[in-house]
Simulated assay, not measured.
Amino acid sequence: MSETEADQDREATLNRLMERLSGFAQGIGMRGPDARQIIDRVIASDPTAGDGDLMAKARTWMLIALS
């Protein structure tokens, strides 16, 4: 996979997870840009993980960020 394809795949994953976690983020009072940044960092920490694992980790990191 080329670097461009990897960037596009990461962006697609970021957008997909952002859409799926937007209700959670709103529910805990987190702003969209902050949630997006956390999701991006979660993807960077484990780029081969599946969506379920990434979402679980993102939720945890969002809750930690609010404390």
Rank of each mutant, 00 (worst) to 15 (best):
S2F: 08
S2M: 03
E3A: 05
E3V: 01
E3L: 09
E3R: 02
T4V: 11
E5W: 02
A6T: 06
A6C: 01
A6N: 09
D7M: 11
Q8K: 12
Q8F: 04
E11M: 09
E11T: 09
A12L: 09
A12S: 14
T13H: 05
N15Q: 13
N15M: 08
R16N: 09
R16F: 08
R16I: 00
M18K: 02
L21M: 12
L21N: 06
F24K: 01
F24Y: 13
A25M: 04
Q26G: 13
Q26D: 14
G27Q: 05
I28E: 14
I28V: 15
I28Q: 11
G29T: 07
M30Y: 08
R31P: 00
R31D: 15
R31T: 10
G32N: 07
P33Y: 05
P33G: 11
P33M: 04
D34A: 12
R36A: 15
R36Q: 14
Q37T: 08
I38S: 10
I38T: 06
I39V: 15
I39E: 08
I39Q: 03
I43P: 07
A44T: 07
D46R: 03
D46H: 04
P47N: 09
P47F: 04
T48R: 04
T48C: 00
A49V: 03
D51I: 08
D53H: 05
L54W: 01
M55F: 02
A56T: 10
A56W: 00
K57L: 14
K57T: 15
R59P: 08
T60Y: 11
M62K: 04
M62I: 02
M62L: 03
